[in-house]
């Protein structure tokens, strides 16, 4: 089974749940930004949670199906159309060869995940390019897929679904729960207060490695000697000019800035669905 990437959109890559066991060699874990949605997509397709999925950032990805294919899309950040018809997230879909799937602009969420039974072959982490062909292991689709009836428009939709997730909107503020980081008490009382009471905006220079946030500048009680310490996904560092950076999926293993806080594990996927320009507020319930 294979598909062709007609357009990769803003940024599309193959992802799984990351490579573990190599951080001692300086190799980041990587993996899907919204790992919860990646897992859901795989489960809809009967895959292992760690199977490769396509991670599409916002919209613009266009896929052509070279063969009869079943697949599922989860997450958010775009609308889906097959041959010009709107199709839903969180369901298994079956399409005939020659059909095209388009991702179109949508105001909620940031990343969508495309899974297919067997998972996409290739190295996790690779960025997808125009004209690239992706194939899968030849395994039979889950029995349920056989029940999907293909209509006149060239596709059919399964009548079961995975639960929808809360997608952050660009027009409202998203609450992100945090816990104090190792250097929390090295920040001034004013800065600690500002961190949990003011609103931050996800900067346009954010990527899979980190979200830069703009808002109140955060200050240390006294200047730190810069010693390199361990960091990982969710850690919030504060740069010399006072801006927080939340480390995301491609976080480096060692960082040189004070770590004011960390995002609670339960909200990391939610944060990954916030796009540049989103407003976020950190919630701390001691």
């Amino acid at each position: 089974m294979s598909i062709t990437i007609i357009k990769p959109g803003i940024h599309s890559s193959l992802q799984n749940l990351g490579r573990w066991g190599l951080q001692a060699f300086g190799i980041p874990i990587g993996g899907a930004m919204d790992s919860e949605s990646a897992i859901t997509a795989n489960r809809l397709c009967g895959n292992d949670d760690n199977a490769n999925v396509i991670e599409c950032t916002l919209h613009g990805l266009v896929i052509e199906f070279d063969e009869l294919t079943t697949f599922a899309v989860t997450g958010g950040g775009c609308r889906l159309q097959i041959n010009g018809e709107e199709v839903p997230f969180n369901r298994m879909i079956k399409v005939v060869p020659g059909s095209q799937l388009k991702t179109l602009p949508f105001e909620k969420g940031c990343r969508s995940y495309f899974a297919t039974p067997g998972g996409w072959k290739g190295n996790a982490g690779q960025v997808l390019n125009v004209g690239q062909i992706l194939s899968t292991e030849n395994i039979p689709a889950p029995h349920l897929a056989a029940s999907i009836v293909i209509g006149n428009d060239g596709f059919g939709i399964g009548n079961w679904k995975a639960p929808e997730i809360e997608l952050p909107s660009i027009h409202s503020t998203t609450n992100i729960h945090m816990l104090p980081g190792p250097e929390w008490d090295d920040f001034t009382e004013e800065s600690k207060k500002a961190f949990t009471e003011s609103t931050f905006i996800v900067s346009p220079s954010s990527d899979r490695m980190g979200y830069r946030l703009n808002g109140t500048a955060l200050k240390l009680k006294k200047e730190h000697e810069l010693i390199s310490t361990p960091v990982t996904r969710g850690i919030i560092q504060v740069t010399n000019n006072g801006d927080p950076i939340v480390l995301m999926a491609d976080a480096q293993t060692i960082g040189g800035y004070p770590r004011i806080a960390r995002v609670s594990g339960s909200d990391i996927s939610l944060l990954a669905q916030c796009r540049p320009g989103s407003k976020i507020k950190f919630i701390y319930n001691p």
Binding site: F25, G26, T253, I254
Partner: peptide
């Protein structure tokens, strides 16, 4: 330690 980038 190794860090900053893979293998550094």
């Amino acid at each position: 330690m190794i860090g900053f980038m893979p293998g550094f």
